[in-house]
Design a protein around this nucleic acid. Structure first.
Lengths: 134, 134
DNA sequence: GTTCTTGCAAAATATTTGCAAGACG
DNA sequence: CGTCTTGCAAATATTTTGCAAGAAC
C-alpha cells in the first residue's frame, strides 16, 4: 500500500506535509520526536508537524511513547501493531544514545490489578544499552 | 524507621526541605509531580524541591515515572522496590483523573530482545480507569 | 572557613494555541 | 464560497541552571 492510501485508509487527507511526515516515519527504524522531525523536514513548520502527529495519533496511525527521556516520541502503528483498546506497546530505550525502538509484539501475561480497575493499554519500556552502543 | 534515618541510610543529609518532601512522598499513595509537591509544600522553592527529587532519585530512594501524561512523576522506593539494576517498575495511570499508582511488585517473564542488547530496567505502565473513577 | 543547601531569578527545553493567509474542492 | 491546512508568532508548561545568601559542621 502506498503512502497516500495509507492516509486515506485512516480518513486523513493526504497533504504534502502529511506525506512527508509519514515517509519519514516509515523510513526510520526508531521512534522520533517532534524535534527530530523538525530537523528532518527543515522546510515544514514545527506546529504543522505537531498537528500532523496529533492527527495521526488520533486516527491510530501512530502512537506516542514516553520513554523517560523527557521528550515524547512517535512511531508508526503498522501491521504488527493494532493501537486498539487493550493494546500493548513494547519499546526499548537506549540510555546511551537515547534512541527508542519498537519491539516486535509479544504477549505478556497481564498483571494483577486491584478490583474495579479497567485497563485499556499496556506500555512496557525496557531500558538499557542497544546493540550499536554495546 | 523514622524519616531522618531513612535519609541517613541513603547518605542524604536530612535537611528541613528533604524531610518535608520525604514526608509527603510517604503520606500520599500515588506518584507526585514536581508541581504537586510545589503546591503541597507552598513554602519551599520549586528548584529546591526539584534538586531534592534529583538527589533522592540518585540515591535510589525514589524513582521517576513517565506515565505519558507529559509530566514526570516520582514515587518512593521502599521495601517492595529495590530500584536496583534489573529492576522492574509497575504503574497504573488513570486516564480519567491522571493519577498514577505504583503497583505491587510482580515478575513479568521478560521479553525477547535482539541480541547484544543489555537491559537494566523494565517499566510497565498500564493505562485505564481507576477504581475511584469507575 | 569550607562545604552543602536554599531561594530567587532566569534560562533552556517542550508542548500547544491564535490567527490570518493560502490551498483545495 | 466554505472548509481544511499551513506558517508564523507567541503563549504555556515543564525542566533545569547560575548565583549569592545562609545554614551546617
Amino acid at each position: 500500500m502506498n503512502e497516500e492510501n495509507i492516509l486515506k485508509d485512516r480518513k486523513i487527507k493526504p497533504t504534502a506535509v502529511r506525506l512527508l511526515v509519514l515517509r519519514e516515519l516509515m523510513e526510520i527504524d526508531k521512534a522520533v520526536s517532534l524535534k527530530d522531525l523538525e530537523q528532518l523536514l527543515a522546510h515544514s513548520d514545527k506546529s504543522t508537524i505537531f498537528r500532523t502527529l496529533k492527527t495521526f495519533e488520533q486516527q491510530k496511525l501512530i502512537h506516542s511513547i514516553a520513554d523517560g527521556s523527557g521528550v515524547t516520541k512517535y512511531a508508526l502503528c503498522l501491521e504488527s501493531c493494532e493501537c486498539a483498546p487493550q493494546d500493548q506497546h513494547f519499546h526499548f530505550h537506549c540510555i546511551s544514545c537515547e534512541a527508542t525502538f519498537c519491539l516486535p509484539k509479544q504477549s505478556i501475561p497481564l498483571v494483577q490489578l486491584p478490583p474495579s480497575f479497567t485497563i485499556t493499554q499496556a506500555n512496557l519500556v525496557l531500558k538499557g544499552v542497544c546493540a550499536n552502543c554495546n
